[in-house]
């Protein structure tokens, strides 16, 4: 796997676990949502692996004990993860939000704008679309219309600011 953030490749600290024992022994377990509800959670902040159709309320119960949520993308064209990310941020999750699956570099800016911090890419994909390409595609558009997405101001906000400045 290759982890790509807006700043470039970053190391991965989390290991996917499948049983309660694995969850106990891993230094930084990434626990599937179904398992997390059943086992005694590790004392340390852990990671939560959630399917893209998981109910937000169910995920939110774990907010206080997780520092990372990885949302799975079964296919790049399955956009449910974008809406889930948006909702998780709205519910107050402030840890790391990871998009996990065969995304393409062309979706990087959108993933970040919806609240993801990083993408966990299968190596086969990372070989075809190296990190550099992700960073380039991220910056291929410098303007967006939608307010409330991404860090910079939307076009609508920039227009409003320009108008106010002109009025002064």
């Amino acid at each position: 796997m290759t982890i790509i953030s807006a700043e470039g490749e970053r190391p991965n600290a989390y290991t996917i676990v499948e049983t309660a024992d694995e969850a106990k022994s891993a230094s930084k377990p990434l626990v599937p949502l179904a398992l997390a509800s059943e086992i005694e959670v590790p004392a340390i902040p852990y990671g939560l692996l959630v399917p893209n159709d998981a109910p937000v309320d169910e995920i939110a119960q774990h907010f206080s004990s997780v520092d990372l949520i990885a949302v799975t993308f079964p296919a790049f064209a399955d956009g449910r993860g974008f809406s889930l990310a948006k909702r998780l941020r709205r519910e107050g999750f402030e840890g790391t939000l990871r998009a996990s699956g065969p995304l393409i570099a062309d979706q990087f800016a959108d993933a970040l704008a919806c609240g993801f911090d990083e993408v966990d890419l299968p190596d086969t994909m990372a070989n075809r679309q190296p990190v550099q390409q992700w960073l380039e595609m991220k910056d291929s558009m410098t303007v967006h219309y939608q307010t409330g997405f991404g860090e910079g101001q939307s076009i609508l906000q920039q227009r409003l600011a320009a108008r106010k400045e002109a009025a002064q």
Binding site: G79, F82, A113, H144, Y145
Partner: peptide
């Protein structure tokens, strides 16, 4: 038109 153009969340419906 403007709002829907490359909407980050709604281009993979």
């Amino acid at each position: 038109r403007q709002w829907s153009s490359q909407h980050p969340e709604f281009v993979w419906l």
